[in-house]
Amino acid sequence: MPRKQIKRKCGHIENIYLEDREFNDPAALKHHEDELCEKCYVSTNRVCEKRMSYVDYKIEYISCRTKEGSYDEKNKTIVVYVPYDYFLLGTL
């Protein structure tokens, strides 16, 4: 996956991984620019870090953000920022 440096809506600059189809797509880049950076997202939202299998993330938690650089290739796991609302709604 290619990396690209973008300016988030909070004003911070962040390097992100993009899928190949997103790299030259202005709408996809705008979507990423309209989000908060990882640090601001975690500090302004009630989330907890949960390590889970990458498959579970893609099936159940695809709408949640992931921690940069947390993918473990050996165990096929990733750290996901799960909103506390998921716990309150009983979706875990």
Results as ranks from 00 to 15, higher is better:
K30Q: 12
C48S: 15
E22R: 05
M52W: 07
Y54V: 02
R21Y: 14
I62F: 14
E60S: 09
D34S: 14
V82E: 05
L88F: 14
E14V: 09
Y84C: 13
K30D: 09
S53A: 06
S63F: 09
D20R: 07
K67Q: 13
V80E: 01
L36A: 01
K30A: 11
I13R: 07
L89P: 00
L89S: 06
K4P: 03
N24W: 08
R65I: 03
V42P: 10
C40S: 04
C48R: 13
Y57T: 03
K74Q: 12
Y41W: 10
E19L: 12
I13F: 12
R3I: 03
K76F: 03
E60G: 03
L18N: 03
V47Q: 06
K39C: 12
Y61R: 05
V80S: 01
L29Q: 11
S53N: 15
Y84A: 07
N75L: 13
D20S: 13
N24V: 00
I6H: 06
E73P: 03
R21K: 14
D72E: 02
Y61S: 01
R65L: 15
K76E: 08
P26K: 02
L88N: 15
G90W: 02
K39I: 15
F23Y: 15
C64M: 03
G11I: 13
L92Y: 10
L89K: 11
E22P: 02
T77Q: 02
C40P: 04
M52N: 04
Y84K: 12
D85M: 11
D85F: 09
V82T: 01
G90P: 00
S63A: 15
V80N: 01
D72A: 06
K74N: 09
I78N: 01
Y71C: 07
C10Y: 08
L89D: 07
F87W: 10
P83H: 08
T77V: 14
K4E: 01
Y81I: 02
